[in-house]
Amino acid sequence: DIIVVALYDYEAIHHEDLSFQKGDQMVVLEESGEWWKARSLATRKEGYIPSNYVARVDS
């Protein structure tokens, strides 16, 4: 799995977006363009995230 960590807070604009806080970790489910589908490890919610707001966690 690709794990990313939030670099900034993000408040969902559309209902399919995923809100998150700086430091939150998410599993990337699908990478396509600038918006990635991800699942929050904390809340288990899924939605689209702006890929420029996150960084990959080296395992």
Rank of each mutant, 00 (worst) to 15 (best):
D1N: 13
I2W: 10
I2E: 06
I2Q: 10
I3A: 03
V4C: 09
V4H: 05
A6M: 04
A6W: 01
L7H: 03
L7M: 08
Y8T: 06
Y8W: 11
Y8L: 09
D9K: 06
Y10W: 10
Y10G: 01
E11L: 11
E11A: 11
A12R: 05
A12M: 04
I13D: 08
H14K: 10
H15F: 12
E16F: 14
D17P: 02
D17K: 08
L18D: 00
L18S: 00
L18P: 01
L18K: 00
S19E: 06
S19D: 06
F20R: 00
Q21K: 15
Q21P: 02
Q21W: 08
K22F: 06
G23W: 05
G23L: 03
G23T: 02
D24V: 04
D24Y: 02
Q25R: 15
Q25A: 09
M26Q: 00
M26C: 02
V27F: 08
V27D: 02
V27C: 09
V28Q: 01
V28C: 05
V28P: 01
V28W: 02
L29V: 08
L29Y: 07
E30N: 11
E30D: 14
E30I: 10
E31T: 14
S32F: 13
S32M: 13
G33C: 09
G33L: 04
E34A: 13
E34V: 12
E34M: 14
W35P: 07
W35L: 07
W35T: 07
W35Y: 11
K37I: 09
K37H: 09
K37F: 15
K37T: 05
A38D: 00
A38H: 01
A38L: 04
A38Q: 01
S40I: 12
L41I: 11
L41Y: 06
L41G: 03
L41M: 10
A42I: 12
A42G: 09
R44C: 15
R44I: 06
R44L: 15
K45R: 11
K45I: 09
E46M: 09
E46L: 08
E46A: 07
E46C: 11
E46D: 06
G47H: 00
G47T: 00
G47D: 00
G47L: 01
Y48V: 06
Y48N: 09
P50R: 07
P50T: 03
P50S: 05
P50G: 03
P50H: 08
S51N: 07
S51V: 08
S51P: 11
N52V: 09
N52T: 11
N52A: 14
Y53G: 06
Y53V: 04
Y53R: 08
A55P: 01
A55V: 14
A55T: 13
R56A: 08
V57H: 07
D58H: 12
D58Y: 10
S59C: 13
